[in-house]
Structure formats: structure tokens, C-alpha cells
Amino acid sequence: MTPVLQADRLGKRYGRRWALRDCTLDIPVGRVVALVGPNGAGKTTLLHLAVGLLQPTSGTIEVLGERVVDTPAQLGRVGFVAQETPVYPTLSVADHLRLGAHLNPDWDRRVAEERIQQLQLDPTQRAGSLSGGQRAQLALALAVAKRPRLLLLDEPVASLDPLARREFLQGLMEITSEQEVSVVLSSHLVADLERVCDYLVLVAASRIQLAGEVEELLASHRRLTGPRRDAASLPAGQQVIEASHTDRQSTLLVRTEEPIHDPAWLVEEVSVEDLVLAYMRGATGAGHDPSPVWGAKR
């Protein structure tokens, strides 16, 4: 089946700084993808390249099997909710729906109205006076009513309080259970997305550090704790992602396809968050080194 998003050595440079480089990705259909990484790592750049708001400096990107061009046909198949979930503050909720219906050829009025009703939004209310959570939900309803095959959401829950965050993700998961839509959502907090995503893409220091099905990633990584040992002495199949040592003990996070039988190790499973943090620290130098990537603003 055609991947929803495919990038080949994709890069975007601003002046002398690469916002994203050497990005090669192949995201299958039907996934809920968590695009995670520190602020300024390149997440927004990747999403903007996917919707044609930016042109690549190098490499290629295809969305739903086609080169990204901003033709109405292609834009209609992709729903995009930008950061801060922008709406028109002086227009009412109902105005937004009318606008959506005018601008989108495949607008599904029933879906839009159902979502608004379910959210108990007052159609006459001005969008400017909605709460952050309601605004995010309105933006999601508009994106979904386009009946997109791919939904791209840039930090949709970052500015929401925990309840609104939960409600937003509940709504989003209802949508994915009803419609055949693939979703990519970015966040700098992996904990927000851990329960909803089944595919992970980690961007740090302008590069893809890790990408794959969450289940496979979790199955192929283990934390080993045992007597101090040089990481170089591990069997060939075990790739060390992160190592820390005390004078007596070693703690390693390894990637391996084989089960680990060495009785000297205490072998533990890792969480998505453990995995993300280990790869991020690897990408940005030592964990305590305040690399400029962390401080950079989007």
C-alpha cells in the first residue's frame, strides 16, 4: 500500500542552518504517528514541508503517494492544524463551518455539525471567546470535516490544560476509530502521546534519530543493569544506545533483535519515554550538555 508520508534525504536549510537534513522516512497507512523531539528540532519544518508551506532545499517528500504540490485536490486530502490551533477570532463557530464548506470541495457537513454538537459549542459564539481547549476542538472539527486521508497536527495539545488535553485526544481517537484516516501529531512531550500513537518518529538536532512501529521499537530495546563492564565487550547484535557507569555497576540501553541470556544482566523492558530520552541525549551530546538545539526557538 502507498505510504502516507515518504521522504528521501529530505532537507531544509535557512541560510547556513539546516532545520532538517537527511530525513528519510516511510510511514505506512493507518497509523497514529507521534512526531516527537525537543523544541526547534525540526518537527514543524517537516510538517510544513509535508503540506507544501515550505519547499525542500534537498531531497524529496511525497504525501499519499504524490509529490507535494499545493493543488486543491491534494490539499483536500490532507488536513492540517497549525500550532496554536489558529481560528478567526471575530467569526462565530457557525461562520467557521460555512467558511469550511465554501473552501473545501468534499466538505462533510454532517461530520462538522456532529462534532460541534458533541463538544456542546454554541454555534453563535465568536471563536475569539472560546477557551483554548474549545478552540483546538473547533480547529480539529474543521480539519476532519474535510474528510482528509491524512491529518497533520502541529503541537495540538501543548498549550492545553490536562483536562482539555485529554478531551482533545479522546476526540481524535474517536475520529480515527470511525474514519480511515492516518494521523501525524507532533509534541515535545512524549508522555502526551504515548497512549495514542502506534508509530514513533523522533527528531533531534535536525535529524531523524529513530522511526518505527512503537511495538517493534519496544520489543527491540532493553535496559541492562549489572556489574561494571565495557560496552565494547557486548555481543555483536547488541547496539548500545546509552551507557552509564559507576565504579561497580553499568546501566546500558541496548537495541537488539535477539533475546539476552547473559545471567550477569538484569534485563528490563523500557517505556516509550525512556527510549525517546535516551535517543535524544545521544543526539544532542551528553545529557547535561546544554546544546544550542535545546534552547533554540521554533
Binding site: Q170, T176, R195
Partner: peptide, 15 residues
Amino acid sequence: TVKEVVGRLAINPNT
């Protein structure tokens, strides 16, 4: 139903 569960727990339908 799957929709009820994901709507309540905010988890991936595949789960």
C-alpha cells in the same frame, strides 16, 4: 465498542 473505549481512555483504536 472500540469507539466507546477510545473515546473514554484516549488510546489508540488498535490497542
